[in-house]
Amino acid sequence: MEELLGRVIAGKVTDENENDYYVQISGTTFRLDKSEIKKPLKLGSNFKGFTYENENHEMQITRNAPQVQVDHYGFGTVVRTQRTLGVFVDVGLPNKDIVVSLDDLPDMMELWPQQGDRLLIALREDAKQRLWGVLADGDIYAAIAQPAKKILQNSNVIARSYQLKLVGTRVMTDHYELGFIHPSEREREPRLGEELHARVIGVHDDGTLNLSLRPRTYEAIDDDSAMLLAALEHSEDGRLDFSDKSDPAAIKAYFGISKGQFKRAIGHLLKARKITQHDGQLWLVTTEATDTTEETQD
């Protein structure tokens, strides 16, 4: 049987009723919703549109062709998963989601895309006239990629994972730069299609990036530092009558941590410019104070 689905094809208008026209292509009749058509079609006229089988197993044709087609790649959004089948992807059709088969997904289900993740896919029609999503491979990503500029070093980027390997995760940024995340630069393995907030730790001469999902040192506030910061934020005037010279017993009684832990937390927050220490007290750095300091340094 001739492959008819997932493409933009021309056919002949052969019939109509109150709600639909009917378009015949190579002996197969497709329903065309009249609400799409601004100017009435004449019987016998030609109509060109995107063909598919809708969720009610009816052959349908639409003038609103999605970007994702047979041999045409585009991004779609995952709407749900089915353990025995795969993931369902919204490609822009009003009454049809496209399935990416579990055979094409990671072996570990926790790495499958979840609702809201996005995949770059094309369509294929099988022998039973069913449309499936085909994941783009590395060659497709390389073909649409843009070279990264050296100025991106140490900047923050938004990326999406497209290839999960033991050696690391391959991603593409929202500006179409290719990147790689080594397992040592992440705390967990990202899902396929997951949006990631990463930091550029290397720009190669070929325009690809090395990325990290780990926070910068000054951003990685530990539990003791977070507790101390919360205490300052909830104090009446943004200060506490403690410093790195305070009595260990007083520190233990108030914060429940040792003086060594307390001093490390202070050091961490000082480095992150979230607090200051003077006159035997700890002071919370406000946004206004930070802005003033930066303007003075400029």
Rank of each mutant, 00 (worst) to 15 (best):
D33W: 15
G138H: 13
F50V: 11
R170E: 12
F75K: 04
I151V: 12
L4D: 01
P147I: 01
E189D: 10
P113E: 09
R124G: 02
A226F: 13
E36D: 13
A136N: 04
G207K: 03
L282V: 04
V87F: 08
Y73M: 07
G260Q: 07
Q114C: 06
L4K: 06
L123T: 07
D107E: 13
T292L: 14
L105W: 00
L196D: 04
V100Q: 06
I98P: 00
D107K: 12
E16I: 01
L32A: 07
S243T: 06
Y218H: 12
G260E: 11
S258A: 03
T290A: 14
L111H: 10
K34T: 10
F242I: 03
G49Q: 13
D291V: 14
G49F: 10
W283R: 09
L196H: 00
L105Q: 07
A10M: 11
H57W: 02
Q297D: 03
V100P: 06
K42T: 15
V99R: 06
L270E: 09
V23L: 05
P106Y: 08
S101F: 04
T62D: 01
N156C: 09
S246L: 03
E189W: 04
Q297N: 08
G92S: 06
L213A: 07
Q67L: 08
T169S: 14
I9P: 08
S155Q: 13
R214S: 10
T208L: 00
K38I: 14
T292R: 13
K252D: 09
V285T: 11
D247P: 01
E295W: 08
K274S: 05
A159K: 06
E177P: 05
R118M: 06
T296R: 11
D104C: 07
Y218S: 06
E194N: 02
A122D: 12
R63P: 02
P66E: 12
D71S: 12
G179M: 09
L228C: 02
S161R: 02
D15R: 05
H268L: 11
P94Q: 04
L152G: 01
D206C: 03
R130W: 10
T51I: 03
A265W: 11
A230K: 08
L131M: 14
K263S: 09
Q69A: 13
T296C: 04
V8I: 15
I158A: 09
L232R: 02
G179V: 12
L119S: 02
K245Y: 10
L111R: 13
L196Y: 03
S258C: 01
G260V: 09
